[in-house]
Structures are given as structure tokens and as C-alpha cells.
Write a protein that binds this DNA or RNA. Structure first.
Lengths: 286, 286
DNA sequence: AACTTCTGAGTACGCCGTACGCAGATAAAA
DNA sequence: TTTTATCTGCGTACGGCGTACTCAGAAGTT
């Protein structure tokens, strides 16, 4: 009874798929299909005519569209038009748009260059390279931050990067769980800060108003609007409080996280220095 | 010439608005309209009949839909149906869906309770409360992470929270720019990690496969698929590497960031310890 | 040559946001 | 009270979307 599929029948509740318009194809089916296309190289059985397209052609066309005109401009009709085929032709290669997005995701995550750049670096240097590389990728493909949502299919490229980072974090006295926490935290910082940046830049570009102008324009409005108390701390900020660029802000935050991680690693190395180390209720080195 | 609007004429390039379907209403106009509705309380001029709805009714209905059935289920038609009015009736109150999202955003960010919870805490305690509160909000309203994108309109609630954090970071020896960096880093960590969590939970729920099963199922596939080298580090991970819950993982990362910030603050307090300290090229203990 | 299977693609359906315009209600102006 | 200006709710329609269904014809196998 997958036909005339209901709008939301996932057990997840609020966190559902992306576009349940007329969608047959549950999330589980999509994940299976994506994994098969990512990892599988089933031979062509070759009975009928040869295919006129390849998966790579479709994916790279879709990537170009998303990079150039944004995710909203990416539609099956548009991809097909660009490839000069009928819309439904694409469905001979992919079961749906969701799978296409999965393939696009893995296609842009190629850790080969980053790994090469890490030769001879210690864990801190490696994490810096990986973080910057990840950040650069999000800036180059802003649609990634609109899409990653609920499509964590692991492809070859994704996994290779993961393997690399896990291995560089070995032998530092961190538990397996902590090594995962390191990666999630670094990635979280990258995603969060970069998302805020794109967020912000889009607004600035759309409104044509600089930061200082924006705030100065709205501060009088708000201090009048809220009768009880004004906003002294905001008002007292110096003009150049917003002057630090996003790159520098990100770097600042990254270094704070790395400092914190390094402190933990060093405290593990000489556990005699600090008696119990309350700090954070850490996961018990013992 | 706004009619038959072209699909993408923003100077931003890739980072464009959300749904340029048939949209009259540029981003600048949207921001103005949203600010007017958020801050303004223009009186009814009262010539025609009285209005049958209020903005709050519309916004809270939309919030219920988004929280319950996800952002994809939120449509103007759905909101109108739920309110038992015609679809176009909503456009008497709002110029479009984008503005509705702006209003929803400000509606869910009410810092009053969090501020009350911070009495007597130092900067670190305050940042902890704020971070957890923000995280709780994202978990309660997952659509926030799909929506914030490119709509940073500042409403009364948003600004009150900002003011509060800025003021608690005063007097610690941090520059204005660094205080902003602290806020952006903490928020970035919250957004990034929580997004990864929702991300992950949706996938697990949809596929019905636990983490360990997922990895174990695909490890043989991938080591066979990629001829050069296997994935020893991933394979060597203990079973419970994934056992740390998301709350604990987030807390771990948060404490690392706070440790790093605290180290910087303390190094500023006794500047005799370290010679010049150029502030942005941070300590680098080794 | 006959058969089988696969290809590309036209058509159609039900969603979406929203521009346009109209009938009726209502308060101000006469 | 009558007139008039304005505002109300909202029906209809347009162009977009993802994709299910269907079928003619091409290209292999037998």
C-alpha cells in the first residue's frame, strides 16, 4: 500500500524526510538504493539497448546546478533539460531525487587531497587541516548545509575521511568514545559557525545593509519598543566589535576547542599533576 | 517588473532565498515586513469590517504544524485549513510564507526563563545554561535547523538573549571581538552537534538499524570495494565506541570549549606568565 | 527471424506559493 | 439615513514541482 503514500507515516514523528509530495520510496528504501549505487558496481546485463547516460553525468550536472543557482533551482526537470533528455529518463538511473542528493553528498567529499596535506603533522595539525578543509567545502557548496539534514548515507569518500581521522587520534590516551567526541565536536563547530556565516552573508547581500548600519538602525527602535530596560551592553560595544572576519572568528573558536582537547590529553599524560580533575565530569579515565 | 519574477536574480549568487517559485517580495522587502510585524504595533484604522484572526493565532498554528509534522508539512494551505479559513485569507495578515517563518523563529526564542536560571552564576555557568537551553530548543523544534538559513531577522526575544550574554562576558579581559567569537563558537557547537544528532536519529529511525549493526553490515562491503587498503582504525574500534549518548558527547565538547576559553581568560589575568600574547594567534602551549 | 528485455519519454495527478479580482461587510462622511 | 470608501474573506487560476503510469521502439539473445 505504498501508493498514494500518506504525507507522514514515519515513526520518527517530526523528523521526517524532505519532500513527501507523491513519494513512494520510504527512507529505508532510499538508503538502501543510495548505498547500492554508491558502493555497488553491478555489471550491465545488456539485453536491451545501451544506456545513453551515466550516473556520473547526472550527478555532476546536478552539482553544477546546485553550486551555481542554489538548491532551490535543482529539480529533476532542470537536470534533465540540461542533459537534453526527458525528465523521466533520469528515473531509469535513480529511483528519485532523494537518492540523487545522497550521491551528490558523497561526490563532494573527497578527502584525498586533505590526507596528503597532513603528512608529518601531529594530531592537532591534522585536526586543523581537516577542519579547514571541511569548512572550505561548505563554503564552496552552501547547499550542503541545507541538505545533509536526514541523509547520512556513508559512501566511500565519507568513510575514508572518517578512517583517517580516527587513526590519527590513536595513542593519545583518549577512549574510543572520546575520539568520536573529538570528531563530532570539531565537525559541529565547523558546521555551526559556517552555517552562521552563510546565513549572515545571505542576509547582508539581500538587504544591502552592513552590520553596523543594521544594528544602529534598529537599536533605537528596540529601546523604544521595550519599556523595561534598554540594551546597555549591546550599545556599549565598540564599532569594530563586528570587525573580526568570519575566518578569524572560526579560527579563534577552533583554537579554543583544540586548547581544551590538548589540556585533557596532557592531563592524561601526567595524571600526577592534577588530583581529580573535575572540569567536566569526564568519562572516567580509570 | 517584479511579476513573472526570474528564478534567480539576487546578486548573492549561490546563496539565495528559499522558495523563488512565483515570488514577488524580495528579501529586503521580506525583512522590512517581518521587522514591522515583529516590532510594530500599528493601530487598526478601522474602516472596514473587523478581522477574524490574529497574527498570534496564525503563528502558533504554524508552530504546531511544524513541530508535529515537520517543516515539509507546513504550507499556507495547511495552516489555513487548520484555522478553518480560506488560504488567501492568511495573506491579509502576512505578505508571504517567508515572513511567517521569520515570526515563527522569533516566537520560539524566549530567553526569559534561561536568564532567570542564571542568577548568581559566573560566565562559565551562564554559558552552560545558555548552551543547554539553545540545544533544548533545537531538539524541541527540529525545523529550526532547516529554517534559520538566510533569515536572521532580529526580533525582541532574540535581541534580549543576545544582550544578556554580551553583558555576562564583560570584565573578563576579552576584547569586544572576542566576546562575539565566544558567542559564535558556543552557538556553532550547539548547532553543529545538535544537527548531527537529529540527522543521525532520523536515519536510525528510518532504517531501523542500530549504529553498530549499520557499521558492521557495511564494513565488509567497503573493504572489498576499495582495493587499496582497508579501514583498520574503524575496524579496531571497540563495540561501545558509539555507546556514548548525544547528551554526553555534547557535554564533552562543550566542556572542552569552555576549558579553552577559561585558559585564555586566565592567561590574560596574569600576563606576566606569557610574554607578548598577540591574542588572535592563540597560546599554542607547545 | 523471433523473442525478450530494456530504453527514452509523453502525459497526468496532486501538491505547492501566490497574483488577481470580486462580493459583501462596516465605519466614516454626507 | 444614505452614501461612499475601504477593508474583509476567499474562489479561481497559473506556473512550478516530484513522480506514477504507460508505451513505442531499439537492441541484444536464442
Amino acid at each position: 500500500m505504498t501508493t498514494t503514500g500518506p504525507t507522514s507515516d514515519q515513526p520518527t514523528g517530526p523528523t521526517q524526510s524532505t519532500k513527501p509530495t507523491t513519494a513512494e520510496l520510504t527512507d529505508a528504501e532510499r538508503i538502501s538504493a543510495s548505498l547500492a549505487l554508491l558502493w555497488g558496481t553491478q555489471e550491465r546485463t545488456a539485453r536491451g539497448p545501451k544506456r545513453g547516460l551515466t550516473l556520473d553525468q547526472i550527478v555532476s550536472t546536478a552539482l553544477t546546478i546546485a553550486d551555481t543557482d542554489g538548491l532551490d533551482a535543482l529539480s529533476m526537470r532542470r537536470v534533465a533539460r540540461e542533459l537534453r533528455v526527458g525528465t523521466m529518463t533520469l528515473y531509469r538511473y535513480l529511483p528519485g531525487k532523494a537518492v540523487l542528493l545522497d550521491l551528490m553528498l558523497d561526490a563532494v567529499s573527497d578527502p584525498a587531497k586533505d590526507i596528503a596535506q597532513c603528512q608529518g603533522k601531529d594530531w592537532r595539525g591534522v585536526l586543523e587541516v581537516v577542519a579547514h578543509s571541511s569548512r572550505r567545502r561548505y563554503l564552496a557548496h552552501p547547499w550542503l548545509l541545507q541538505v545533509n539534514w536526514s541523509r547520512p548515507v556513508v559512501g566511500p569518500n565519507t568513510l575514508a575521511g572518517l578512517e583517517f581521522v580516527v587513526s590519527t587520534l590513536a595513542g593519545l590516551g583518549l577512549t574510543d568514545q572520546e575520539r568520536f567526541s573529538v570528531m563530532i565536536s570539531i565537525d559541529g563547530l565547523v558546521v555551526g559557525v559556517t552555517r552562521a556565516q552563510l546565513h549572515h552573508e545571505a542576509a547582508v547581500a539581500a538587504s544591502g545593509v552592513t552590520d553596523a548600519e543594521f544594528w544602529n538602525r534598529h537599536l533605537p527602535v528596540l529601546s523604544k519598543a521595550m519599556l523595561s530596560g534598554e540594551y546597555p551592553a549591546m550599545a556599549a560595544l565598540s564599532e569594530d566589535a563586528y570587525g573580526l572576519g568570519w575566518d578569524e572568528t572560526f579560527e579563534w573558536g577552533l583554537q579554543r576547542v583544540l586548547d581544551g582537547i590538548q589540556a585533557l590529553i596532557e592531563s592524561r599524560r601526567q595524571p600526577a599533576d592534577q588530583p581529580p580533575e573535575p572540569a567536566s565530569q569526564p568519562p572516567r579515565p580509570a
